[in-house]
Design a binder for these strands. Structure first.
Lengths: 143, 143
DNA sequence: GATTTTATTGCAACTTTGTTGCATTTTAGG
DNA sequence: CCTAAAATGCAACAAAGTTGCAATAAAATC
C-alpha cells in the first residue's frame, strides 16, 4: 500500500481527520529515528510553509490521541516522536529513550518489558503505575 | 553542628563561595522532598527579595557543580532538586524520579543500584553509560 | 582592619518557546 | 452541492529563561 494511503488509514483509525498538515508531520516524524524539536520539523518542511501554531497544535493533537509523545531535551524545548508502531499497526508506548551525550539526539528504543523495574528503597506509600527509562551514552552515529 | 555551618562547609567542599543567596536556596531545597520550580523557590523566599536572575544562576551553578539536578515537569518549566546526600556528605546521583499523576509533584527516590537495567532489544551500536528512571503513580500525599 | 582581586548580584532588556483569539479555509458527512 | 465542525494562519500575547553591565560582596593577602 502506498505510504500516503497508509497514513490516511492510520489517522482515521486514530479518530483524526486527514489533513495535509498531519500527513506532512507524520511523514517527517516517520522519516527519522530521533525525536525532533518543533524547529527541526519546521526546517524539514520549509517548502510547505507550515504555520508554527498549526505545528504545535498538530503535535499536541498527536500526543492527546496517543500516537506521539514528547521528551524534554537538555535545552529549553521539547522533542517530539511518534510512538513506535508494531506490525499490526498497534501503537506501543513502552519504550526507552536514549540520549546521546555527544550529539544530544534522543532515540526511542524498544525495551524488554520484563519485570525489571527497580523498586524504591523502603519508600512507603508510593503507588507505582508506570515507569520510564532514559538511557545515556553514545549513539551509533557518534561511536 | 548548626545547619548553617554545615551548609558553609558543604559549599566550600564543593568549591563554591559562601553567599547568602546560596545558603537560602540550599535551605529551601533541603526543606522539601519534592523538586521545586523556579517560581516555587521565589515564593518560598519572598521575604528575602531574591532576584530571579540570581536564582537562575544559583541553580545552574549548583547543577554544574554536581550538587543539584533538574527534571522536566509536564509544564513548560524545569524542576530543581538537590542530589541526595548520604551520611558521609557524599552526593549520590543514582536515584529515580517519582511523578505523582494526581498532584504532579516530583520526588527523588533512592533506587537499588542492582543490575536491573533493561537492555535495548537488538539495538546495535548504542553504548550505554548511565540510566535514569522516571516512575509514575500516586504519592503518599494523594493516596 | 585595609586593600585588592575575583566572583556574585541586581536590574533592564532581550530571546526563545509555546499559547490564545478569531476570521478564514478545509474536511467529511448527508 | 450544502452544511457543520474541525483545522488553519496570522497577529498578539504570555511565560520561562538569558545576556550585558555596573555595583556589591566574598575571601585572600598583607
Amino acid at each position: 500500500m502506498a505510504r500516503n494511503k497508509q497514513y490516511h488509514q492510520f489517522l482515521r483509525q486514530c479518530g483524526l481527520k486527514v489533513t495535509s498538515t498531519r500527513l506532512l508531520v507524520l511523514d517527517v516524524l516517520m522519516s527519522t529515528r530521533t525525536a525532533l524539536s518543533h524547529s527541526d520539523i519546521l526546517d524539514k518542511t520549509r517548502g510547505s510553509r507550515l504555520d508554527k501554531v498549526t505545528l504545535y497544535r498538530t503535535l499536541n493533537t498527536f500526543i492527546t490521541h496517543g500516537i506521539a509523545h514528547k521528551v524534554a531535551s537538555e535545552d529549553r524545548n521539547w522533542l517530539y516522536a511518534l510512538h513506535p508502531i508494531d506490525r499490526n499497526n498497534t501503537v506501543r508506548d513502552d519504550h526507552a529513550h536514549f540520549i546521546c551525550d555527544q550529539c544530544e539526539r534522543i532515540y526511542c528504543l524498544p525495551v524488554q518489558t520484563r519485570n525489571s523495574m527497580p523498586a524504591p528503597e523502603s519508600e512507603e506509600g508510593f503507588v507505582i503505575r508506570t515507569h520510564e527509562y532514559r538511557l545515556h551514552g553514545i549513539c551509533p552515529q557518534c561511536h
